[in-house]
């Protein structure tokens, strides 16, 4: 089932779809538009709308604007908004689920290739260190589309990186490794083997 596209402002069909189909969507009803979330966001200035306004746009039935918004992609999962939200709206989950909906409904085509490259970088970090190192993952992802493009992206997102460092979502220096990387590799190999047996894609 696809989300309905409202024909007029504040038609609630899209909002109601979000309430029912998005993780934490019911809780969204309680948002009182205080702005604590958008104010808490380390990269709030980078977002076109920020979660607070995005939620109002959901109510207003602005489906396309919501699903093409960069807000749903830019969440760094710091959870500052979630802990501060006076109405206990699970903002992070909602944004993540909305980005999934955006892909599902084809609003995020342009991002798809990007996502695949990002996933590859993520996987690399996970298997090599047993952790995701935000700095290295990002760097590997940026440079996956060529050296020049990588530098450009890196420079453009400097502010975000700094904010992430500040909110402890990224650290500088050597990547932390989990204990027993060897065992991890064995586990990953086993997982790959099981997946192959079930004939699923990687």
């Amino acid at each position: 089932m696809t989300a309905p596209t409202p024909s007029r402002t504040y038609d609630l069909s899209f909002a109601r779809y979000v309430y029912d189909h998005i993780d934490g969507g019911q809780r969204l009803k309680l948002c009182m538009q205080c702005g604590a979330c958008s104010g808490s966001c380390p990269i709030g200035t980078q977002m076109d709308h920020g979660p607070r306004k995005l939620f109002m746009m959901i109510r207003a039935g602005m489906k396309e604007a919501v699903l093409t918004s960069n807000t749903i992609w830019n969440c760094v999962s710091c959870y500052n908004c979630v802990v501060r939200c006076p109405r206990q709206v699970p903002i992070t989950y909602i944004l993540h689920d909305l980005s999934a909906l955006a892909i599902e409904e084809g609003y995020a085509e342009a991002k798809k290739a990007d996502n695949a490259r990002f996933a590859k970088a993520f996987w690399w970090s996970a298997t090599v260190f047993g952790r995701t190192d935000e700095r290295l993952v990002t760097a590997r992802y940026y440079f996956s589309s060529g050296l020049g493009e990588g530098i450009k992206k890196g420079m453009a997102n400097q502010a975000i990186a700094l904010a992430m460092v500040k909110t402890k979502r990224m650290h500088l220096g050597m990547p932390h490794k989990v204990k027993g990387v060897g065992e991890l590799k064995a586990i990953v190999a086993k997982a790959a083997e099981i997946q192959a047996r079930h004939g699923k894609e990687g």
């Binding site: 504040y10 009803k29 948002c31 009182m32 109510r59 109405r87």
Partner: peptide
């Protein structure tokens, strides 16, 4: 107020 929001009432400022 929260009960009304829960009931799906939309608040426009």
């Amino acid at each position: 107020y929260r009960a009304a929001q829960d009931a799906g009432v939309i608040f426009m400022k």
